[in-house]
Design a binder for these strands. Structure first.
Lengths: 335, 335
DNA sequence: AAAAAACGCTCAAACGATTGTGCAAAATTT
DNA sequence: AAATTTTGCACAATCGTTTGAGCGTTTTTT
């Protein structure tokens, strides 16, 4: 049932070497006769021979495999990213091993070790946690590592990310230009570099407009619940904000729930800008104005750089931030 | 840099065998002295030894790997499914190789071959296309295959799917009980078994209520555009339906767009029931009533059955359909 | 007709692990 | 003190490939 070079060799009556050379397309190079070649090919065909990539990997010392460590496949943002990566890796003749770290630093670290023992030729990872040492050592000594979306602040590890600062800045500018002064920002996890960059952009925009004192930054999780709770608190303030900037799609959903409970309408009573772009946002009432991250480009670029490194094409230090774009909905009112 | 049993053996001054036995935890069994064991462990630790799963796989003839073939990781439904599978497989000490077939039958078939050459011990797949022969042969001769979500009509291949018939039936019943008689159904691809089961359930419910003649089934794709176009057509009929049953979340989004353009409000002017469940549906205006598929349970069950088969625990023919549940929104009006 | 070249294929080692068997030295029993 | 058992480890084959080197035949060259 399970065929190998030797079972074929035996039946055809030649050596394993010859079979290998024929089936790997080197018949000509090693002067195997047309007749022998044909007989071997026929037999391989007949018995449905499939070469063992495991054996090939061992011998050739390349597994044609890359590892992907994502914090949550269930999150559409990372799912889309993974989708692009998996396809692109496949297009290049490699296969992807996927591990979902579930936002856990321990899983992340163990995942790396697993990838190493599986001899992957490169690793694409969305990091969890703050400690970059292990990753740096692996990247330096063993296989190329490429970070996506998140990165370590003080590290030289290459990454591709959204220009989150610009996203935060542009969103805040948009609201300011529409006349808003009390603009609250509901953030996600505070240890995440992208989150902090968004907040920094938001703060700078306010500062620039002479609204530095008005900045309100709340929240600590990229979840619906966090968005809901923080929005509840914001709405109960005496000086209720006139606009909310939600730093993720889930936070936005939570905000929407709170607004609904307070019978507040967008954009008449309050304005809303979200981070992240999903199709459904166009179909909300009203459509949500949002900062769209270039997920596909990020994934493509990260994959390309990783493969360049695998192929030995030096690209120097690459720490890239791609510009987000604003998608206009109708959730921002003029004051 | 790259350590192996032999580099360690050499440095410690023992045989490869001994190192192997110590590091695989069999020191006791093979009477390796405590001192030797300690020296080997220390050296392995020092040089960051990571065993090669590739070499182990070749020798032990088990790769501890399973393959996952999904039609579109970018689709949140399959992303969630994949998320559960990847985690569950990982929990069992295996790793998942992922291929995105992009709904292409050729990719699907090639993906299977790739998985085989990588010697996976089992395959979880959402099939594309109609031809089950290759899959059946592989399942019979080589490695256990388990289908999820979709399945082949006339095949004995094991699968876990939603009870789509019940989903279609229940949704239609719900609308009928609310007084609707002209209930249109917008479907997805007509070669998909789940799609057809949903339609069959819908038809049976209408039939039962004496509305057999009223059935309207339109559409041919699980896309926003299809939902939009078909809804446009439906709305332009003289006998406009009073309710729409959209067979996927994307179709629903398309319907919403068409309704908005026609200035029709849900549920006053028209009712809507969707298939698939996503958090955002609770935050639409109004929240959408929908048929929720038990994605997590399906994924868990499929994975369990696959592993049972890998472990040689016979489970007989398992073709399972799990009941969907209806999540009540406010998108269905009484007539 | 002898020498050289081309032909067609095989040998054997290697990749990095695992594992049944074997064997000398030490410890124990008789 | 001889026989037996236990201890502690090594040998060598194996998994399924790849690959440099080699070797007998046939064909071509001179």
């Amino acid at each position: 049932m399970k065929e190998s070079l030797s079972t074929i060799a035996e039946r055809v009556g030649v050596s394993v070497t010859t079979v290998s050379r024929v089936l790997s397309g080197n018949a000509e190079k090693y002067r195997i006769s047309k007749t022998t070649e044909a007989r071997i090919r026929a037999e391989a065909e007949r018995c449905n021979y499939v070469p063992s990539l495991v054996a090939q990997s061992l011998r050739k010392r390349q597994t044609k495999t890359i590892g992907l460590l994502t914090p949550s496949l269930a999150n559409p943002y990372f799912a889309e990213m993974s989708s692009v990566i998996v396809s692109e890796v496949h297009r290049r003749g490699y296969t992807t091993l996927v591990i979902d770290t579930m936002e856990d630093e321990r899983n992340f670290s163990d995942g790396f070790s697993l990838m190493l023992s599986r001899q992957v030729e490169g690793i694409l990872a969305v990091p969890c946690g703050q400690d970059s040492r292990k990753v740096e050592q692996i990247n330096h000594d063993l296989v190329p590592v490429m970070l996506i979306d998140r990165y370590y602040e003080e590290s030289a590890l290459p990454y591709v990310s959204t220009n989150n600062y610009k996203g935060g800045y542009d969103a805040a500018r948009l609201l300011i230009k529409s006349g808003h002064k009390r603009i609250a920002c509901i953030q996600g996890v505070r240890t995440s570099a992208p989150n902090n960059e968004r907040v920094r952009g938001y703060r700078d925009a306010l500062e620039e407009a002479g609204l530095g004192g008005e900045a309100i930054v709340a929240g600590n999780e990229f979840s619906i619940q966090n968005g809901y709770l923080e929005a509840k608190l914001l709405l109960s303030r005496k000086d209720r904000p006139t606009a909310v900037f939600a730093l993720s799609n889930n936070i936005t959903l939570g905000v929407l729930k709170a607004l609904k409970e307070a019978h507040l309408h967008i954009p008449e009573d309050i304005s809303l800008v979200s981070f992240d772009n999903y199709a459904y946002m166009d179909y909300m009432e009203p459509p949500i104005t949002r900062v769209s991250q270039p997920v596909e480009d990020m994934a493509l670029l990260a994959t390309k750089i990783l493969f360049d490194r695998i192929d030995g094409v030096s690209t120097g230090v690459s720490q890239l931030r791609l510009s987000p774009t604003i998608i206009q909905g109708e959730s921002v009112g003029r004051l």
